[in-house]
């Protein structure tokens, strides 16, 4: 009897330790990033966020350009990806199973391709294409910047947003759809006026998941953004993002520069935390079916 209790207790503690490891790592992550940012926070302070002058050589670390680039690429990407993802989710939910299942799997596979490959594709296919198309209209364009960044981000975010939307829409009670159709709605009216309203929270959660992914995506953007640290003022401008700056600058950085990069990472982390914290209650524990 005693032995059973002992192994049981040991097993329970071992499992509990796993959960504690997770908590500890998360706390350590925040602590390390904070600690490493201190130097930059002390020397650069608020100019880190409010100045757009990013010139490590003479010690100016204003990341407003990267922040603006992050916001702009993310926003543009979502503007393109969300309607597409919603439409694709509707398609999959309405199609007969022999079409819906392979299409859904194919869309899921989009998310399996590593982001560095999307970056390459952007660099070697998308950017030259944009450049040549625009030059045909007499517009000189480098091919890099906001447009290809947000396009590649949109493509990468789409499968995630669409998959969550698919699940959210599939949970709509049949009776609700039937009663909407019963008062004489078209399929679209039933979807837009009734189903979307009733699934608002979940759909918003899906968009937030896309937002989180787009904000933090690094490699794909790094390949095509052009690495311009100024605040972009036009669609055709080059840009950079927080994540791309981190990956681009880190190898050569030391001292305050390195610390400034940690501080940028801290900002990104705070944003992602805020997004996750609002998303979790919106979609609940989705994977539990």
């Amino acid at each position: 009897m005693r032995r059973i209790l002992d192994t049981d207790t040991a097993f329970r503690w071992f499992c509990k330790a796993g959960a504690i490891v997770g908590l500890a790592v998360a706390i350590a992550l925040v602590a390390v990033i904070l600690k490493e940012s201190m130097l930059a926070l002390r020397t650069a302070g608020f100019s880190l966020v409010f100045s757009a002058e990013w010139n490590p050589a003479d010690g100016s670390f204003g990341a407003a350009g990267a922040l603006a680039g992050t916001a702009a690429t993310t926003l543009l990407a979502l503007l393109m990806a969300v309607p597409m993802a919603f439409a694709a989710a509707l398609f999959v939910n309405a199609a007969p199973p022999n079409v819906a299942v392979p299409v859904a799997h194919a869309l899921d596979l989009l998310a399996a391709i590593p982001s560095v490959i999307y970056g390459m594709w952007g660099l070697f296919v998308l950017c030259p294409l944009l450049q040549s198309v625009l030059s045909r209209f007499g517009i000189e364009y480098t091919g890099f910047g906001l447009v290809p960044s947000s396009l590649v981000l949109a493509l990468m975010v789409l499968p995630y947003v669409s998959a969550v939307m698919r699940d959210v829409l599939a949970q709509t009670p049949v009776a609700l759809v039937e009663s909407a159709m019963g008062v004489g709605c078209t399929r679209w009216e039933a979807t837009w006026d009734v189903v979307v309203r009733s699934r608002k929270a979940g759909l918003l959660g899906a968009i937030m998941i896309g937002l989180g992914r787009a904000l933090g995506e690094t490699m794909a953007v790094l390949f095509v953004c052009g690495g311009v640290s100024a605040i972009p003022t036009g669609l055709l401008d080059g840009c950079t993002t927080i994540a791309a700056t981190l990956a681009n600058d880190f190898a050569e950085a030391d001292g305050v520069h390195k610390s400034a990069l940690f501080a940028l990472g801290g900002i990104l982390l705070a944003l992602e935390f805020a997004i996750q914290a609002t998303t979790i209650p919106l979609i609940g524990r989705r994977s539990k079916k």
């Binding site: 609700l176 039937e178 019963g182 008062v183 004489g184 009734v194």
Partner: peptide, 21 residues
């Protein structure tokens, strides 16, 4: 015309289904 048919033939279901409005 299905839309017109369903306007002329209303339906009440087993469980109340108020729209989310």
């Amino acid at each position: 015309d299905l839309l017109d048919l369903r306007r002329r033939v209303g339906m009440i279901f087993q469980k109340p289904t108020p729209f989310p409005m």
